[in-house]
């Protein structure tokens, strides 16, 4: 499973997005605000998700913010950190 696919799966599971299918999350869809509709509490949960499922630590929100734009940017961030 690619990082993007795994990301979509764990987003749905760990953020309880029961009404969303992985296919419905587009790679460049905004995670926060109008796109997937996540908020500030999801953002900090997302830090835990990335740590728990990918072993990648995000130290603070300033570091996380650019990565948290979309599945694309987050997957890219994770891949870079794992490389």
């Amino acid at each position: 499973m690619s990082v993007k696919e795994k990301l979509k799966k764990v987003l749905i599971e760990d953020l309880n997005l029961e009404d969303v299918e992985p296919e419905e999350i587009e790679d460049d869809m905004a995670l926060f605000g109008d796109g997937l509709g996540l908020d500030s509490l999801d953002a900090v949960e997302l830090v835990v998700i990335v740590q728990k499922h990918f072993g990648v630590e995000i130290k603070d929100m300033e570091e996380g913010r650019p990565a948290f734009q979309s599945v694309n940017t987050l997957a890219q961030y994770i891949e870079q950190r794992l490389a």
């Binding site: 509490l41 900090v44 949960e45 835990v48 740590q51 728990k52 630590e57």
Partner: peptide
């Protein structure tokens, strides 16, 4: 559970809140 199972850096802010 969130930190006992996965370590303190995985403490869940949602559960905490």
């Amino acid at each position: 559970d969130s930190y006992l199972d996965f370590g303190y850096s995985c403490s869940s802010p949602t559960h905490f809140s």
